[in-house]
Simulated scan of single mutants.
Amino acid sequence: MENENKFGFVNFAETWNGRLAMLGFIIGIATEYITGQGILSQIGLM
């Protein structure tokens, strides 16, 4: 089990990719709520 490939389209990598995407989404929503600005406004594009 420990010699299993952890890169590419394998379950391990896809699971962590999904978890980190959900975390990033929640952080983005919280940042918008706290600052009152969208992501584009925060980085100066709008």
Rank of each mutant, 00 (worst) to 15 (best):
33 Y>K: 05
18 G>S: 07
40 L>A: 03
31 T>V: 15
25 F>L: 13
20 L>W: 00
7 F>D: 04
25 F>M: 11
8 G>Q: 15
29 I>P: 05
17 N>F: 13
23 L>K: 01
46 M>I: 08
26 I>R: 02
25 F>S: 09
3 N>S: 01
34 I>T: 03
19 R>E: 09
42 Q>D: 10
7 F>H: 02
9 F>W: 04
20 L>G: 00
9 F>G: 04
38 G>C: 12
38 G>D: 14
11 N>S: 09
18 G>T: 02
39 I>V: 08
35 T>A: 14
26 I>W: 07
27 I>F: 11
4 E>P: 00
30 A>V: 00
9 F>A: 02
4 E>F: 10
29 I>W: 07
19 R>S: 13
22 M>Y: 00
43 I>M: 11
22 M>F: 01
34 I>A: 02
6 K>C: 10
20 L>N: 00
28 G>T: 12
4 E>W: 10
5 N>S: 14
16 W>F: 14
29 I>S: 05
6 K>S: 06
1 M>A: 15
17 N>Y: 12
19 R>G: 06
25 F>N: 13
14 E>K: 13
38 G>W: 07
9 F>R: 03
32 E>L: 04
38 G>P: 02
23 L>M: 02
25 F>G: 08
15 T>D: 10
32 E>Y: 10
19 R>Q: 07
18 G>H: 03
40 L>S: 04
10 V>Q: 15
9 F>N: 11
18 G>P: 01
31 T>Q: 13
32 E>H: 05
18 G>M: 04
36 G>P: 08
41 S>W: 13
